[in-house]
Design a protein around this nucleic acid. Sequence first.
DNA 1: TTCACTGCAAACGCTTTGCATATGG
DNA 2: CCATATGCAAAGCGTTTGCAGTGAA
Lengths: 159, 159
Amino acid sequence: MNTITTTSNRARQVFSAFLEQHGHRKTDERFAVLKEIYSSHGHFDIESLFLTMKNKKYRISRATIYNTVELLLACNLIRKHQFGKNLAQFEKSFENRQHDHLICTECKNVVEFCDPRIQNIKTTVGEVLKFKVMHHSLNLYGICINCFEKKGGSTNPAK
Amino acid sequence: MNTITTTSNRARQVFSAFLEQHGHRKTDERFAVLKEIYSSHGHFDIESLFLTMKNKKYRISRATIYNTVELLLACNLIRKHQFGKNLAQFEKSFENRQHDHLICTECKNVVEFCDPRIQNIKTTVGEVLKFKVMHHSLNLYGICINCFEKKGGSTNPAK
DNA sequence: TTCACTGCAAACGCTTTGCATATGG
DNA sequence: CCATATGCAAAGCGTTTGCAGTGAA
């Protein structure tokens, strides 16, 4: 019916082809992890994915989830983010455009944004420093308007 | 004589004032850590700082270094970077301009760069999303020319 | 049949914490 | 004097690894 189902199915096809191409086995566990990720929204971490699947009576181990997540990263079906030191976060990335994150240091809320100028920076810096830049991580840290007003600031935080 | 000594001394004053203002004790260990950091160059991590100080016959523990580093972060005398998941890296930041990092995913080498366009992104995104952006973290990940050639690529990795 | 994959649990590596001792104010 | 800091070692915590058993091809 909807985009979720369609995207999920296409992701499954991509994953299946990837496994085949690389001589990896197509196990139930791997597809179960993919399905679980693609039927949820927003960011997730390994532990909560593990617990969610345990609750749904899947027979799965953390090791298999770590393994599968590695494969999903390799075929770009998910992206990894390291906002703090611990607890790496992931999100599905199929038919989901590249974006960066703005994090409120007060309420820890995360907002996504896209700015094409980051691409220019990557290109220039790569050329000047002779690097083949593969990917990047840009996080902006600040105070969102709600938290700013609570702290007694004027009404325009961007000033 | 030179900037290093001067900077180191000024940093010591800043730290001393900070400790006083916050009711923290001025212990030998804390100043020893500061001195060690300010007399070295580039990035460092806790473990290597610990080992360096042990070799120099300081009587110091990891716990104290972690504690002191926390205080130095609080008064902006050092900055913290999380390039990979493990091993947080630090660098002194007093009279040291803001810059971002380019990390080689093969040899783990870190190169610094400055690109003024990041400032434009921060301003625009802050205005549009109504955030008061305080700071940012931009890491570019890629393959440096040495590693690229070892892997048999053509001579220009930026292409 | 075979060997990559799995579940489980132990090991890892950096960081934090607990506790007895030491010391700055 | 005594609350804060310290050294040391153990505990935490997310992640990785080792291994015996399992199942896809």
